Simulated scan of single mutants.
Amino acid sequence: MDLQLKGKRALVTGSTSGIGWATARELAAEGASVIVNGRSAARLASAVERIHVEVRGADVDAVQADLSSVEGCLRLIAAAEDVDILVNNLGIFEPKPFEQIGDDDWLRFFEVNVMSGVRLARHHLSRMKERGWGRIVFISSESGICPPADMVHYGMTKSAQLSVSRGLAETCVGTGVTVNAVLPGPTRTEGVGEFFAKLAREAGQTLQEAEHDFFKYARPTSLLQRFIDPAEVAAMVIYVCSPRAAATNGAALRVEGGVVRTLI
């Protein structure tokens, strides 16, 4: 299927690895001009090189900016003033007992996971409306509708993203602009891989045993019973970014392996 993305300009935040990188790679493969973003110059260079290796003729640029601050967001906006597609992928997570989550943690998670996307959407949404076409996608999580007890602050930010996404979509009536959220489930990102490798070492398990126990005890409702590959999430994201998804607006689209036991 041709997703009709040739000639579109896309910005994907937090895209040096994981879901962000997979999304940038797939957008480039569909002919879009892609801007990847991250904090580390070395990781950005590596991300761009990997896309060029996998996608012949890819049009990829990189902007180094830390989006946990207003200044970082403004730096990215200055370097990428006009885009057709904005994928707010940047996010952090950290298992931590609720009683130990201090104010600084709450504010840090809100700044990174919510305000980075809010600031970028605030800049780009009006420009998309003026052009009569645009796509904004927030990468939320199944944790946004099933808040995890071991990461209450993380779940809060993912719920907030759903509210922001739907609210922005309500402002796009008849404009040709859509705003949606994609909700991945447990995904084999770099951060998740490192976290489970640490858990496995501490428990004297293999990585496969740790993964098996996670789905048996922590995510027993998963129908997939394995970690999702970032490319499997990216497939949904780039569809929502495409002109073919014009009738999908204000939606929360689940790519969570069946963890959430609801009909809709």
Score class of each variant (00 low, 15 high):
A24T: 00
T248P: 04
V164M: 06
N180E: 11
G176R: 01
Q64R: 14
F214M: 11
P186C: 01
G174S: 14
R39C: 14
Q4P: 00
S242L: 02
L67Q: 04
V34Y: 12
R119K: 12
G38C: 11
V240D: 06
E111K: 01
L67V: 11
I238E: 07
R261S: 07
V70A: 12
I92S: 11
Y154W: 06
S33R: 05
F93G: 12
A65F: 14
V240R: 02
T175M: 13
M156T: 00
A24K: 05
F98R: 00
L76I: 09
L224H: 05
R56W: 05
H124L: 13
L44A: 03
A203C: 06
T206F: 13
W133T: 03
S69V: 02
S143T: 02
I92D: 10
N249F: 09
E194I: 03
M115G: 06
G7P: 03
H52T: 11
S46P: 03
S116V: 10
T262V: 15
P147K: 00
A79M: 12
T157R: 13
A45Y: 04
G176W: 01
I101F: 01
A231I: 08
W106R: 02
I35W: 15
G72R: 04
F215Q: 02
N180Y: 10
G257R: 08
T171W: 15
V179Q: 11
A169V: 10
H153M: 04
K158Q: 10
V70D: 09
V114G: 04
A121K: 09
L263W: 07
L168D: 12
G193T: 08
A251E: 15
G257Q: 08
D150H: 03
R119N: 07
G72T: 02
S68Y: 09
R122E: 15
A80S: 14
Q64I: 15
A79H: 08
H153G: 00
V53N: 03
R166E: 14
